[in-house]
Nucleic acid binder design. Sequence first.
DNA 1: TCTATTCTTGAATAAAATGTGAACAAACTA
DNA 2: TAGTTTGTTCACATTTTATTCAAGAATAGA
Lengths: 227, 227
Amino acid sequence: MDKLKILVVDDEIRLRKLVKDFLHKNGYDVVEASDGVEALDLFFSDKSISLIICDIMMPKLNGYEVVKEIRHYSDIPIIMLTAKGEESDELQGYDLGVDEYISKPFSPRILVARVEAILRRSHALASSQILSVGGISIDPDAHEVKVDGKQVDLSYKEFELLQYFMINQGVALSREKILNQVWNYDYYGDPRTIDTHVKKLRSKLGEKGDYIKTIWGIGYKFEVGQE
Amino acid sequence: MDKLKILVVDDEIRLRKLVKDFLHKNGYDVVEASDGVEALDLFFSDKSISLIICDIMMPKLNGYEVVKEIRHYSDIPIIMLTAKGEESDELQGYDLGVDEYISKPFSPRILVARVEAILRRSHALASSQILSVGGISIDPDAHEVKVDGKQVDLSYKEFELLQYFMINQGVALSREKILNQVWNYDYYGDPRTIDTHVKKLRSKLGEKGDYIKTIWGIGYKFEVGQE
DNA sequence: TCTATTCTTGAATAAAATGTGAACAAACTA
DNA sequence: TAGTTTGTTCACATTTTATTCAAGAATAGA
């Protein structure tokens, strides 16, 4: 009952389910609406909603109209989803009071990270902290990694992957799981892509690259090793 | 990230409510038991409990007896509550495996601080249900096996096989059954393959390899041996 | 004790998974 | 647009694991 409730508005049921799953796994309650009218109904009848994630392109009322309506009465944080190639007039959106844009397709990690960041801002929750394990420290806000205090340049994917590894320190992660969390939800490519990224990560981390262990037949595990 | 669940055991309903409130506010899920018997029932039926806070003085089973029983099967962190003026034989408690004592009355901050410290220590943060029998413990999440606390490297199949044995501790398993459970359903090879894996398992487990007993004409059985 | 089975073991072979470098494609910058 | 960086795929080398096999040891029963 302590969970924060998020309203997800999208006309695609598949995408709603997807988003709902990600958020559930991260400890949020989710209510769904399939169009703008339903969204407004839900929002005005349920005062416990803490954040809205809303697609732009929808039947009946589009995303901007929903935002406009809600902003007459509430400062609730709103994240807009924009489809690829969609004419997202972000400036208009920010004027209306949209807090953040996320473009589809996104990765689960990104979605959840944005949600947390916004809730942190509005709910004055604890700020995100620097993750530091075995001499590797990673700053999500600055998107910066240091190994023994020395900064290391990682690409975007490498950073995301390392962060996921470090958050799940000590847990054996299958390639499938990694793909599902770190890659966009529409990625159905070769799992061996991960191997290549791991290779690069290991080499960029130097000695500490050994923290990323290979679990034969399964995947990888980040572990600061005794042994 | 899912909330960690804490079992609170105390016969005083007021105190349980109090503790529950503190923990709730700090982001934990709480289940309650009002005496030792109920506590054991709950603990053994709910594998997701990460920590136990337990009063000493209780009807039916007192705190120490609860700890003793639980310690046969689990290393879950346990915090004992001692009433003021109560004769808390702390030495006995620590011997049994109590992680921490908190004496009543305590302040919310202290309670929560201790809980966090212990969870951090035991990094039960997202830890799994470790299966532990006769000095062999097996962690499915980390895909890691320890014999007397020392890590042992097993291949994937070896790991699966050992896990199956341990789950079916004390049960004689035919080769056919093992093949059906541990091997892919499309495997129609030589059942003797199992023998080879058993051989390797036994040798990697050292002395404790003897736990895997041969049942002549049938198969194998995992049993922590008296004899 | 002897014999027919059933297991154990080690070595050989087959199969599977991973590491790596390079090529290509896509996204981003200047 | 050209030039870079980043992400993905692929093929092949390498490593690790799984399976088979056969000889020798152990077991149960007569």
